[in-house]
Design a protein around this nucleic acid. Structure first.
Lengths: 124, 124
DNA sequence: CGGTAACATTGATCGTTGTCAATGTCTACG
DNA sequence: CGTAGACATTGACAACGATCAATGTTACCG
């Protein structure tokens, strides 16, 4: 789980911040914490690559949200080590999981991982 | 508008793909197109930075979802040119808009921009 | 009209990352 | 047990990006 689901963004202080003068407007709630920003940025960075987005989409397009590496090397114009590297990034970030059956490696979507990061994003 | 809202991901072909042999499972729908993956990756890359996430959160935490640069230099331990650079990235990506009033620059959240990218993400 | 304050732009540096060639590992098969 | 196939790992390189110091631009003030 790369980051917690409950970002405490709402209804905290709305307190003192009267700088009383020029430019700055008041706050309505707390901003995100630095370490939460770090975690979310790491999760987003793993997604922010065209090849990795296509990999996720190809996996999701397969029955049972599972595909083997040969499915990917077919459709992506990238070398096999490069695809393997992207797959490792996605597994490490928690979006995909790997299963070996015989010679073949199958990658599956981790259920809810995309929705979680999308939800956190929409919650600021 | 960084990318179109309607990703035609569902209900297309489910067609021929009988590789008839070993490893590959059938498709249930089409995968994302390469140029859509490029556009989405660009949008995500603009978000995939801790400083920029904090900037967006700070702006969103202010009344009317608007903050001036001094609000940001106060809270972020980054130099003023660096913050200005991040703001430019976010404006170019369509997440923030800029307004000058007198000496001060005010940055506002573009309504719906975060929800749009979150929605596209959740749609694979 | 000089000076200052707020912010943007430029230029340089340095760590990060996407990519591939080469090689390694492991499994199936004859 | 040797060979071939599927995939992972390593090493190297080039491109990118985050950061800051220095400088530029513009508005306000005395």
């Amino acid at each position: 789980m790369p980051f917690t689901r409950t970002l405490p963004l709402v209804g905290i202080s709305t307190s003192d911040i009267n700088k009383a003068d020029a430019c700055c407007s008041p706050l309505t709630h707390e901003a995100i914490a630095p370490d939460q920003a770090d975690a979310l940025a790491r999760s987003l960075k793993a997604l922010a690559d065209p090849a990795r987005l296509r990999i996720i989409s190809i996996v999701a397009a397969h029955a049972d949200a599972e595909a083997c590496v040969c499915d990917l090397t077919d459709q992506l114009t990238l070398s096999q080590p490069t695809i393997s590297h992207h797959l490792k990034v996605l597994v490490d970030a928690g979006y995909l999981s790997r299963t070996k059956r015989g010679t073949w490696s199958y990658y599956s979507l981790v259920p809810g991982s995309l929705d979680t990061v999308a939800g956190v994003l929409a919650a600021v």
